[in-house]
């Protein structure tokens, strides 16, 4: 599919960068003139995916998180968040609401549920020891409808 615009950023898996990721993605998405609700949905989904990479992907280690954002035709926003951390053993189980491997950190286990609810499409690819990629899409409809 034709890519109208694209950014790629890489940041270390520091929790302070959760807000950095939201700010960068917001700045990129603004060009497509989203509604306040659409922008909020995308920011929240990105925050969940980046937090997952930090808390679950890298756990107590530090690595890089790579974020790719694309503006596609028909006002579709594509976002990929990739880590090279420990990977997910059972993706289906990990995506179940309230499932978490970090209850001691008061993780609610709702990260994937939020991503699914707030975006139109969610895909997760993962390999143990290699890392995880989360791919999300959202079609903006505020102006075209």
């Amino acid at each position: 599919m034709k890519v109208l615009n694209e950014i790629k950023i890489t940041m270390p898996s520091l929790s302070i960068n959760e807000s950095t990721a939201r700010a960068v993605i917001s700045s990129f998405v603004i060009q497509a003139d989203p509604t306040v609700e659409e922008l909020s949905d995308i920011r929240t989904a990105v925050s969940e995916a980046v937090t997952n990479a930090i808390v679950h992907g890298y756990r107590n280690t530090c690595g890089n998180i790579e974020i790719t954002a694309r503006l596609l035709p028909e006002r579709v926003i594509y976002i990929k968040i990739r880590d090279t951390g420990c990977g997910i053993e059972d993706i289906e189980k990990a995506m179940q609401p309230l499932f978490t491997t970090a209850p001691e950190e008061e993780r609610s286990g709702l990260g994937f549920s939020v991503m699914q609810s707030f975006m139109d499409r969610l895909g997760v690819k993962s390999k143990i020891g290699k890392g995880t990629s989360v791919i999300m899409r959202k079609k903006l409809g505020g102006l075209g409808e």
């Binding site: 939201r22 920011r43 008061e106 993780r107 609610s108 990260g111 939020v114």
Partner: peptide, 13 residues
């Protein structure tokens, strides 16, 4: 001005 599911864990805790 912003809250993700980390806020849910915070509230339930």
């Amino acid at each position: 001005t912003f809250m993700d599911s980390s806020g849910v864990g915070l509230i339930l805790g």
